[in-house]
Amino acid sequence: MSEAVLTEVENGIMVVTINRPEAKNAVNLAVAKGIAAAMDELDSNPEIRVAILTGADNSFCAGMDLKAFVTGEMPIIPGKGFAGLCEASPKKPLIGAVEGYALAGGCELALSCDLLVVADNSKFGIPEAKRGLAAAAGGLMKLPRMIPSRIAMELALTGDFIDSARAYDLGLVNQVVPAGTTLEAAKALAAKIVANAPMSIEASKRVIMEQVDWSTEEMFAKQQAIVDPIFVSHDATEGAKAFAEKRAPNWLGK
C-alpha cells in the first residue's frame, strides 16, 4: 500500500491515515489508491470490524491536490470515485476523525464517513466555486441530505466555512472533542461498535444507507430481505444466551 496512506489494525479497528502532511493531506492519485485498497481490506478481512479515517499531523484533508490536477492527474478510482471512497461506501462502519480543516474534497471525504468525531478547532466547507470548480465528489448531493438544504445551498454558493460547533448544531457531526484527541475519541466510539454483533452492524448500516430511496409501501419488505438472515443466525442465539447468562457474547459473525 502507498506510503501516502498508512494503515494499522488493533482490536478489530483499522486506522487509515492520509499521510501527506507537507500538502495538508491533499488527495492525489496515490492517496486515492491507498484509501481504496484500505476499504477493500476493511470489507474483506473478517478480523477488521470498523475503520477510522484520519489525517497526519493534526490535519484532516485540504481537498484535491490542485497542483496534481493542473498536470492532468485525477484522484479518482473507477467504481469508487474521488479519493477511492466518495462513490462507494464500505459495508462496514467508517468513522472520520477530523483535526483541523476538512475542505472541498476533504469535506466530501468526511461526508462519506458514517460517523464523525471532530476537533473543536475544525472547519468544514465546500469552497470549490472559489476555484472555478464544483463539489462534484458528493458535496452537492450528500450535504443537503444531512443538513437543511438552505444551509447547504449557502455553503455551496458562497464557499464559506463552518466551525465544529456549527457543524454539531446542524447535526453534521457526532462528537466535538478537544483538538489533538479525535483519534482517541474515535477509537473509543469504534470499540463500542466492535462489541456488537458483526452481522447486525453491517445490516443496520445497509438499511440506513439504502432506505433513503424506499417508498412507504416497499420499505418493510426491503428491510426484511436484509435483516431476516440475522434472526436465524448463530449470533442471534448467542446474544440471547449471553444476556440470560449475564456474560459478554462471543460473536462469530454467522
Rank of each mutant, 00 (worst) to 15 (best):
R49N: 05
R49I: 05
A51D: 07
A51F: 11
L53Q: 05
G55V: 13
D57Q: 11
S59W: 14
F60N: 11
F60I: 15
A62K: 08
G63D: 03
L66F: 07
L66K: 03
A68K: 13
V70E: 11
V70N: 13
T71L: 14
G72I: 05
G72W: 11
M74W: 03
M74T: 14
I76Q: 06
P78V: 05
G79K: 00
G79E: 01
G79A: 02
G79W: 00
G79N: 03
K80A: 15
K80M: 08
K80Q: 12
G81D: 06
L85D: 06
C86T: 15
E87I: 01
E87R: 10
S89Y: 10
S89H: 15
S89V: 10
S89W: 11
S89I: 08
P90C: 12
K92T: 01
K92A: 07
K92R: 15
P93V: 02
L94K: 09
I95S: 07
I95D: 07
G96H: 07
V98C: 02
G100T: 12
Y101Q: 12
Y101V: 00
Y101A: 13
Y101E: 04
Y101G: 07
A102S: 04
G105H: 03
G105M: 03
G105R: 10
G106F: 00
C107P: 01
E108R: 05
E108G: 01
E108V: 09
L109M: 12
L109E: 00
L109Q: 04
A110Q: 11
S112K: 13
S112H: 12
C113A: 14
L115H: 08
V117K: 03
V117E: 00
V118L: 08
A119R: 07
D120K: 01
D120Y: 00
N121Q: 13
N121V: 06
S122D: 01
F124S: 01
F124D: 02
G125C: 09
I126H: 01
E128M: 00
E128R: 00
K130A: 08
R131L: 14
R131V: 10
R131N: 11
R131G: 05
L133K: 14
A134E: 11
A134Q: 15
A134R: 14
A134L: 14
A135I: 06
A136V: 15
A137L: 09
A137K: 02
A137R: 04
G138Y: 06
G139T: 04
L143V: 10
L143W: 02
L143H: 08
